[in-house]
Computed example of a mutant assay.
Amino acid sequence: MPPSDTDKHRKTDHDVIIRATDVTVRFGSKTILDGLSLDVRRGEILGFVGASGTGKSVLLRTILGLNPKQGGKIEVFGVDYDRASDAERLTVEQRWGVLFQQGALFSSLTVLENIQVPMREYLDISPQLMEELARLKIDLVGLAPDAAEKYPSELSGGMIKRAALARALALDPDIVFLDEPTSGLDPIGAADFDELIMTLRDTLGLTVYMVTHDLDSLFMACDRIAVLGQKKVLVEGPLQTMLENDDPWVRSYFHGKRARTVVPKDENPHYAVKDSDGK
């Protein structure tokens, strides 16, 4: 069988920094991902979306090596993570940062101390330099200087997200993984966070892998979107590809009532097409 256009693209794209190929993940007898393949390209903001419970966070954790997989291969920066030595894994891990759901800050540590955790783990630098770098990250994500001495319980939801992002940036990573970064934020706070992510991508040359349900984030911030469905990537591409796709779930998600508050009618080619209810 001749290779598909997708296969040809996957083989010739030299800007891919994460490549998941035929990944299968099971928990007991339940299969979560089955033969999933996905590329993440250098410098892009990739939005990863799918119905609740389909395995979006499972794939993220599998890429990070936190979940075992039963089949397939994951390469990060050209390194096959399964075959990598401890030294190679250490090198790879220092090139990524992670913002977990709800921030996952250590409640007994201040913001400054939380940001210093990866530095203490991986860097051999003086306490003074570590503090200076941590304060730089606090400023980078738009937090006030006095946030450094606050504990997570003293922070608002938006401040927690920014503090967690500062920790994810502690080692100056090449890629950041964001798991539902705007969940729980009000619309203004979520829009501000999206703006921050886009600014950091452009300023620092980051690649961003964003698991999200937030339509505003998908429409505003993402260069490319991948949809998880039927235990694999159902469709991937820019927003226009999502708007033109006829899969029932994709169509419902990107053409539903909530989507119509985000995308102007003149930018959505399907607004002229009636919904199944005739509206």
Rank of each mutant, 00 (worst) to 15 (best):
M220S: 12
F193V: 13
G205I: 03
T241I: 05
T241G: 01
Q230H: 15
A191V: 05
T203P: 06
T182V: 11
E180T: 01
E195P: 00
I197V: 15
D179H: 11
E236C: 07
R201N: 10
P238F: 02
I188A: 13
P238A: 06
G184P: 12
F193S: 14
D223E: 02
L196F: 05
D214P: 14
Q230C: 10
D179V: 07
I197E: 02
Q230V: 06
I175A: 01
T241V: 11
F193G: 10
D202T: 03
V227P: 05
N245A: 08
A191D: 13
G205P: 00
M220C: 07
K232L: 11
G229M: 06
D216F: 12
V235N: 10
N245F: 07
D216Y: 14
G184S: 13
F177T: 09
M242R: 00
D192L: 14
L204M: 15
E244N: 12
D223C: 00
R201P: 04
M242N: 00
F177I: 08
R201D: 02
L196W: 10
K231V: 09
L185V: 11
C222Q: 09
E244A: 10
S217W: 13
A221R: 04
I175C: 00
I188V: 15
E244Y: 06
L178R: 07
K231S: 14
C222M: 00
Q230P: 03
R201A: 00
M242A: 00
I197P: 02
V176I: 15
G237Q: 06
I188F: 13
I225D: 12
T212S: 10
R224N: 03
E236T: 11
T207G: 00
I175P: 01
L228S: 09
M198K: 02
F219A: 09
T207P: 03
A190G: 13
A221N: 09
T212Y: 00
L218F: 01
V208S: 04
L239H: 08
I197C: 07
A191R: 13
L200Y: 14
L196R: 11
Y209G: 02
T207D: 04
G237L: 03
